[in-house]
């Protein structure tokens, strides 16, 4: 990687900070995203209504349901899977009004699943605060068979659907919530570069 290089299509992830003024706040986190929620509640938090949606994730190294239950003083709903969290979110979005601020934390794959829900409800991606937590693993879209492999840790990996060895291109689609994966040995079949864990 050179100096001055960055993935221009990739959004910047930041630390969650309460956004005011607002009429309400909805915080959505999964797995290691729990730490970002705890950090939020260490800040002076706003008087407006706050809701927190959280789920433990099997893929996470550390989960936060227990500690969140003790510490979050506001309305907290613990879901038992990402799927049930997303369904719960979809329902809640129907009752949200303009002026509600949104916060999301977790792995890149988790965050972009959440953002697909908020986007469908009319919230623009740029208006959602995002914090990447726990892992640099990338969701990768296989441009050949059009499936997304979640949580890719290596520069080159076999597609979970078609098995082609994919190189992860530095190009990110917010609509798909994934990086582009392109067959690495198409020019010279079998010539696969050394596989390294680059997204721990």
């Amino acid at each position: 990687m050179q100096r001055g290089y960055w993935i221009r299509s990739k959004p910047l992830y930041d630390s969650l900070v309460w956004q005011t003024p607002a009429v309400a706040h909805l915080v959505i986190a999964g797995g290691e995203g729990g730490i970002a929620v705890l950090k939020l509640f260490q800040q002076m938090y706003p008087k407006d209504p706050i809701q927190v949606l959280y789920t433990d994730l099997a893929t996470a190294n550390k989960n936060y349901s227990d500690i969140l239950q003790q510490i979050v003083p506001e309305e907290l709903e613990l879901c038992d899977s990402e799927e049930s969290l997303l369904n719960n979110l979809e329902q809640r979005l129907k009752d949200c009004t303009m002026g509600t601020h949104f916060y999301v934390a977790g792995s890149e794959a988790f965050m972009w699943h959440v953002l697909q829900k908020t986007r469908a409800a009319g919230v623009q991606d740029v208006d959602v605060q995002k914090e990447l937590c726990g892992t640099l693993a990338r969701p990768v879209y296989c441009v050949h068979c059009k499936t997304i492999t979640r949580d890719v840790h290596h520069n080159v990996f076999p597609c979970s659907n078609c098995g082609r060895h994919l190189f992860v291109r530095d190009h990110f689609s917010r609509r798909l919530g994934a990086y582009m994966g392109v067959m690495v040995d198409a020019e010279e079949p079998g010539n696969i570069p050394q596989i390294e864990e680059v997204y721990p």
Partner: peptide, 9 residues
């Protein structure tokens, strides 16, 4: 702004 509307809207 006071009601938290994003500028994009």
């Amino acid at each position: 702004k006071d009601l938290g509307w994003p500028k994009t809207h």
